[in-house]
């Protein structure tokens, strides 16, 4: 007799538990690097250190800053993916670095932080 309330579909989680986590962690860390790049380009623009070129005139400098950050994200993700996609990586340190980069990136896009420069 079937167990009451049991979904008809099979639980497939256990079968895929051994899939290498490298591609996932590369994706997460790549996003962290992209987030940091966004904050970095916004901050150095406000500090007058580096002004990304305007790529679409009507939108102004934000078009260059965001495109640069997206390019940094995609390059970092691509490189990490190629290196890690078949590997099992310790997720603790990668997660910690990812969250730190995201935190710094968000701070870098927060206007009150720019006033400190």
């Amino acid at each position: 007799m079937a167990t009451a309330g049991r979904p008809r579909e099979a639980n497939v989680g256990a079968a895929r538990q051994d899939v290498a986590n490298g591609a996932a962690l590369a994706s997460f860390l790549g996003a962290g690097i992209g987030a940091f790049a966004m904050g970095f380009f916004a901050s150095i623009n406000e500090a007058g250190i580096f002004v990304a070129p305007t790529l679409y005139g009507p939108a102004g400098g934000v078009s260059g800053r965001t495109t640069f950050a997206i390019a940094a994200w995609l390059m970092a993700w691509g490189l990490l993916h190629n290196r890690w996609k078949h590997r099992q990586i310790a997720s603790g340190p990668v997660s910690a670095i990812t969250l730190t980069l995201i935190g710094l990136g968000i701070l870098g896009t927060f206007p009150p932080v720019w006033r400190l420069f």
């Binding site: 987030a35 966004m38 904050g39 965001t66 997206i70 995201i102 896009t109 927060f110």
Partner: peptide
């Protein structure tokens, strides 16, 4: 804030 933060959410 709106100029940059949403791009982080997208990534």
């Amino acid at each position: 804030s709106k100029e940059h933060m949403p791009w982080i959410a997208v990534m």
